[in-house]
Amino acid sequence: MTATQYSLAELMICAASKAFDNDGEVLATGIGVIPRLAASVSMSTNNLDLMMTDSEAYLLSEPNPIGPRGDDFVQRNETWMGFSRIFDNVWSGKRHAMIGPTQIDQYGQSNISALGSDYDKPKIQMLGARGLPGNSISHANSFFVPNHNKRVFVANECDMVCSIGYNPERLPKGYQLDDVDIRLVISDICVMDWQGPNHQLRLVSVHPGVSVEEVVEKTGFAIHVDDNTPTTTSPTTEQLALINKFDPHNLRSKQLKDNPPGIRVAVSASEEK
């Protein structure tokens, strides 16, 4: 049954869960509360074959709820999956990661390492490239963007390109653009994929109350827009119950500024003036 009341975070979790639905038996790695809950929902509904870890060192047969779980909680371990073994999985290709990069460019290249034009003296040093180079050339990847704007969707290439994308200039010898597998982008205003002409970023759906123009305006490069853009599907009551089960401490309510509702109140004509 379609829910009538839900938060934007919950809408994003359900929209993001779709990314994993047709993956088959792969490791789903959702970094951050919303991506992790998205993988948890998919693993409990449309893709029972999905695999997840406890974010530490074990592979689970059922996703762990996030946060403190009580002393009587029994984690459903199925095998050890420490960090060194994660790379055996990564390089086998049987994985789909969803992360929230600081920058994404028109080629689907992303950055979590450093900001600024001088690599030797960055304006802002962030995490470092982490596992993005390996993830991006080895398996499927999706992006989560909590605040859709031109600082994230940058006009030029990322300051530090951490992940390979659909950039013909950077294509390694012996590779096709189709060897790169970037799936969905779930932001706070829309869902997109990279299936426009020549892997251009394409608008898939806009969240309730969001216009196509708003998406175009807030993206730092041209995106492909089809004739009719549907509205992002609302969560079902079943999905909301699962989200509640996997996030009993309601950490999802702290992921987006002011925890806005899923159905945005339309700005009236008078207010627009």
Binding site: P133, V161, I164, K173
Partner: peptide, 26 residues
């Protein structure tokens, strides 16, 4: 294959990209 197509290679000039004796990829 890790690092291909990214700035990891650009920012580490000492990191060599080589041809394979067994396939046509770098």
């Amino acid at each position: 294959q890790v690092g291909l197509g990214t700035d990891i290679i650009k920012q580490n000039p000492d990191l060599k990209v080589i041809d394979s004796p067994y396939d046509d990829k770098e």
